[in-house]
Design a protein around this nucleic acid. Sequence first.
DNA 1: AGCTCTTATGAATCATTGA
DNA 2: GTCAATGATTCATAAGAGC
Lengths: 281, 281
Amino acid sequence: MAYQLHTGDCLQVLQQLPEACIDLIFTSPPYADQRSKTYGGIRPADYVDWFMPRAAQFQRVLKPEGTFVLNIKEKVVAGERSTYVLELILELRRQGWLWTEEFIWHKKNCYPGKWPNRFRDAWERLLQFNRSRQFKMYQENVMVPTGDWCKARLRRLSETDRMRDESKVGSGFGKNISNWVGRSLAYPTNVLHLATECANRRHSAAFPETLPEWFIRLFTRANDWVLDPFMGSGTTLVAAEKLKRNAVGIDIVPEYVAIARGQLQAYDEVSAADYPRSMGF
Amino acid sequence: MAYQLHTGDCLQVLQQLPEACIDLIFTSPPYADQRSKTYGGIRPADYVDWFMPRAAQFQRVLKPEGTFVLNIKEKVVAGERSTYVLELILELRRQGWLWTEEFIWHKKNCYPGKWPNRFRDAWERLLQFNRSRQFKMYQENVMVPTGDWCKARLRRLSETDRMRDESKVGSGFGKNISNWVGRSLAYPTNVLHLATECANRRHSAAFPETLPEWFIRLFTRANDWVLDPFMGSGTTLVAAEKLKRNAVGIDIVPEYVAIARGQLQAYDEVSAADYPRSMGF
DNA sequence: AGCTCTTATGAATCATTGA
DNA sequence: GTCAATGATTCATAAGAGC
């Protein structure tokens, strides 16, 4: 599959893309007052004004039947939750977006801490926006097996697990696959249970690969185009690549673009090396 | 414990209550366009205007160090999530409330169903508002058992734990290793996992008793006063009664007040019958 | 394979200190 | 005053190593 990496502010970079070429935008922008050393730290009061012109570009490049998924969470300021995310939702609607749904990402291993009048924050928002009510959705791609015994096994819907299981089948070690056959599948809900990533320490705000993977499966098919305008270390692009989607990644920090390129190349090499073997070569 | 039940619109009934007499308001108001047969079905566009004068009364009767917890979820209108909850939060802040936190109630067994472009809705908001940053909170009342990791970790403190402690504290003995010894309870997060209740069929919007119970334990002590201005079948009041708090319940529908009174009396009778036995009589 | 045990770490929050 | 930087606090999960 093809991927393009761009260094720069997505506000400018996206102007070079044609209209209506993207099927899914999945992104986790810098939250207000976070990642200030790398992104300049947008103030909560300025956040909506900073975001909206970029959202206008998202709207332009997204296909009319595409989907825009925004991962964000407001921080606490002076003992209160900031309201900029609420204001952003209202403003995006005024820009013409439909606020179709709000998914909850339950972070099972959230950051530790104890405070006298607050518990640990264990969830983030995944806001789904659309240009039209007739957006594309492939629900069967994210169905989960029912029953507790396989829940632990399939909590991670990663492609590597699937590949490993398939290889087990091929080699005669398919212990679980036969059990799955005939098991009823169920549709998930709008609450996702995923742990935060423990592996990637080169980017300050990486989300687990299973998060973009889930939405890429739900809202795109193979050869569709995925965009992450705040790419970071490229987790969204790696997930897209593994799922055989095309991808466009943008980040303003050259170091992150380099990391993303490295991760994508590393995957491509592993993938290329594995391919002949799995085919019997 | 004492409880008062009132039939009427809380906007009027609350005006009879003195100022600053309530420690916790826990309520699940009629959602917009829901329960239209009983509450008249407030339109989404009118919801904030309908709610705000009642919120002003909540603010008046709540103690300065008390807490207001609002259980609410926006419905889907024309394929989109309504925005009246977002607007309500913004408007409540303008009224002087602090939006301290947003808890998520994850409904483990949510209503079944399937739609072409939407999954089942498995969560609701529990919005915490306060009059002051110095509100009362009794975290130890809602602690949950820790996982097995605690025992394993304490058996032999890992090298990293020891190094982290020493590097941060400097003293030879870590800060709270002693706290961990023998500890079996941990503080929860802001995500609650509770099943929905199927028991009460006579009221259209019943939540499980564990939901108000959790917040009553967290924000009040025995003999404190709990208010539910949209009482429904009285789940909040029963929870308060069981926890030996005083309670005020209001509902505009006489039938619901009757149901609530019946549930409270049923509990009191059981409780009274148990009392002598449990005291050894 | 299937256990146990070890280890790292995650968009956090608050109070205090310093500019 | 306002604002920025620093230090202290601390739990669940998954990957990996070992048996």
